[in-house]
C-alpha cells in the first residue's frame, strides 16, 4: 500500500501572500472605475439623445459634489491604470530590435508613457480648439 498522501495547500486569500500580488489586485481593481466611467459616459449619451433638458440635468449631475469626488477617484485610477499598463507592456510585446540591439523594457515603458502624454495633450488641444475657437 502506498504511504503517499500529497497535501494540496488552499488558495484562499492568495493575493495577500505577496506584495506583488497585492499590487496586481489593485491594478486589476482599476477596471471597476473604468467601468463606472463608461457608465457615466453612457448616461451622458443617453441624456443627449433625450434632448436639451435631459442633457442639462446630466451636466448638473456631473458637476455635483458626489460626482466630482467620484470622478477624482476615477481620474486617479485611470492614471494608475495607464502607469501599470505601460509598465507590464515590455512583457506582453514580442521582443523588438533596433539596429541589432534588443530594445530595453524600460525604454518601451517610457515610450508608452510618453505616447500617453502626447495623446492626452493632443486630445485636450483638439477639444480646446473645438470649444474655444469654433464656438465663438
Amino acid at each position: 500500500m502506498s504511504a503517499r498522501k500529497p497535501y494540496v495547500r488552499p488558495m484562499a486569500g492568495w493575493w495577500r501572500r505577496d506584495p506583488f500580488f497585492v499590487e496586481y489586485m489593485v491594478h486589476e481593481g482599476t477596471a471597476f472605475f473604468v467601468w463606472l466611467y463608461a457608465l457615466e459616459l453612457l448616461a451622458g449619451v443617453l441624456c443627449l439623445a433625450q434632448g436639451k433638458a435631459a442633457w442639462d440635468a446630466y451636466r448638473a449631475f456631473v458637476a455635483s459634489v458626489p460626482l466630482l469626488i467620484l470622478n477624482a477617484a476615477i481620474f486617479a485610477m485611470m492614471l494608475y491604470h495607464g502607469y501599470t499598463w505601460f509598465k507590464i507592456m515590455p512583457r506582453t510585446l514580442p521582443p523588438m530590435k533596433v539596429g541589432g540591439k534588443r530594445v530595453a523594457g524600460a525604454t518601451i515603458t517610457a515610450l508608452g508613457l510618453g505616447g500617453a502624454l502626447v495623446a492626452s495633450v493632443l486630445l485636450f488641444g483638439i477639444v480646446w480648439m473645438l470649444t474655444s475657437g469654433g464656438a465663438q
Partner: peptide, 26 residues
C-alpha cells in the same frame, strides 16, 4: 494568463516566461 508578470520576476535564469505566454496570446 492574466499578465500578473511575477513568473518573470522570480525566474532565476531570466527566461521571461511571461513574454512567451503573451506572445502566445497574439
Amino acid at each position: 494568463c492574466t499578465a500578473v508578470g511575477y513568473c518573470s520576476e522570480v525566474c532565476p535564469k531570466m527566461v521571461d516566461p511571461a513574454n512567451a505566454v503573451n506572445v502566445g496570446k497574439m
